[in-house]
């Protein structure tokens, strides 16, 4: 990563934890996980809590749908690390990589429910134009999506708009496909704690 403190500035206990994770997983701790362990009281602890609640807590979207929303936002933000991580996680969660790839390549023709598609269209505008208006939200509501579902999706948006920016700013290393798959299985088993 671009800041040396994010490569080497961890406590002894955290360094030992990173080594244990590497021994058991076969891969170094991904940079997305490392940054929440750096001075965790400043950002990491609070962000992990929000992200875990959003991605694994009670929600009107399934885990697979939330991971797909995360991958979709990351694609819009062109964040290579997060595209790889959450495409892999959504693909395993759905047990359908073809569906996930279809959404990321062409939302209009993707074989997903109209309610999810309506939310993703709104999220696309929010992410690319940085704002939406009540007419945009009315279209989502008219598609049968409830306000609670929209809020749950917006929480995913917040989490990944932050993480995408940090990945690009700090320069997260992009691992290979096998490492992403290993990370995806971990995220599905343990979440974002």
């Amino acid at each position: 990563m671009r800041l040396n403190v994010l490569n080497n500035g961890y406590t002894i206990g955290t360094k030992i934890l990173f080594k244990i994770i590497k021994i058991f997983s076969g891969y170094p701790v991904p940079d997305a996980a490392k940054i929440v362990f750096y001075r965790p009281g400043f950002y990491g602890n609070q962000m992990k809590k929000f992200t875990h609640e959003t991605m694994r807590g009670p929600s009107l979207w399934s885990v697979a749908e939330r991971e797909l929303i995360a991958a979709f936002i990351s694609k819009l933000n062109e964040c290579s690390f997060c595209i790889g991580a959450h495409t892999a996680t959504a693909s395993i969660a759905y047990k359908d990589k073809t569906k996930v790839d279809a959404v990321l390549s062409d939302l209009e023709t993707a074989p997903i429910e109209e309610s999810l598609k309506a939310v993703l269209i709104c999220i696309k505008k929010l992410t690319l134009e940085h704002s939406v208006n009540s007419n945009d939200m009315k279209k989502v509501l008219d598609a049968g999506v409830t306000p609670g579902q929209i809020m749950d999706a917006l929480n995913v948006c917040f989490a990944f708009n932050v993480t995408n920016r940090l990945a690009d700013a700090f320069g997260f290393q992009v691992p290979d496909a096998k490492a992403f798959e290993t990370g995806a299985k971990y995220l599905l088993k343990r979440g974002y704690k």
Partner: peptide, 26 residues
């Protein structure tokens, strides 16, 4: 490190709040 986190959270927060306001109005 701190300033990058602050600007990333700030921009994401503005988008989030704008969307909530739009949802509330709609």
């Amino acid at each position: 490190f701190e300033l990058i986190i602050c600007v990333a959270v700030g921009q994401s927060s503005r988008q989030y709040e704008a969307a909530i306001n739009a949802l509330t109005e709609a």
